[in-house]
Amino acid sequence: MPLKTFRQAINDTLVQEMQRDVRVILIGEDIAGGTGCEGDGDAWGGPLGVTKGLISEFGPDRVLDTPISEAAFMGAAVGAAMNGLRPVVDLMFNDFVSVCFDQVCNQAAKCHYMYGGQNSVPMTIRANTGAGISTAAQHSQSLHPVFSFFPGLKVVVPTSPYEAKGLLTTAIRDDDPVIFLETKLLYDMEEDVPDESYEIPFGEANILREGGDVTIVAVGRMVHVATEASAALARKGIECEIIDPRTTSPLDTETILESVEETGRLVIVDETTPRCNFATDVSAMVAQEGFAFLKAPIRMVTAPHTPIPFAPNLEQLYMPDPAKVSAAVQQVVGYQG
């Protein structure tokens, strides 16, 4: 099985889905790059190179560069999706939803329900997410909790190249609007990825490691942070069960509860600010549905309630890391009622 980066896995998926279904089109700023310029018309392939080569293969009718007009092109994607196309929109940074919030959260999310099921909105919104490369407060947020708030949206946060390909395939073939969040720090991660297409179902958590002492639920890159912490913890005799929900909406509450029933302890790792986020969501769910399983209070490892700082040392301080996860795990394991 060939080794592919996260970036290549997404590019491959887009190529295969566009080959498979002529209704799939791409929309976004600089997804080709070079449109209207004298030089290379396939200059960028997105600011992070994820869609490189696609305009050369599929042409400008299916790979549509846009002016900087998120509201217009996101709205256009909704209209196109309701009329037989299956747009994949590149929002670039997930923070930019702030300038097309109405299109994503009022239109895409609600049209199917509001219109009594007359029109589905089969569109995928790709956006990068997360801190770690000094892109500061307006380009580094992890907004999966914001999107997960809205019924009608499905929210995917893949953790590896294999997962990214299967989940993006599912997203593009899904009949609902899907938010697909690509963690910046994972773009160069490599993994064996099949050349063939495959779907990973939404709403089924992945159990990355089995262990009987503590359940760690983590999302996106935080899964790797948790995995690193758990390897060190295993040497201390603490076995962690690591659960990657894959999709924060729908959320596989069953797998989380089953695990907590076994371990009796829960740590949630989420690279977001601490209020109304994924961690609080899971925490509340387990407190309500699985209180009897708990041997210790739930702990959440999140970023602090601050905007994301620019200075690299402060940014490192901002993000959850293995040491913080390890400390939280040891705290719940050592808890004496």
């Binding site: 549509l64 092109f73 909704v78 209209g79 196109a80 999706a81 037989g84 196309l85 109405d102 239109q107």
Partner: peptide, 23 residues
Amino acid sequence: IGANSGVGSGAAIACGVALAAKT
């Protein structure tokens, strides 16, 4: 296509409807 509480959004959605027609 129904109305939008954001009032102007139909203009953007229309672009997509037209894009689909053009396609």
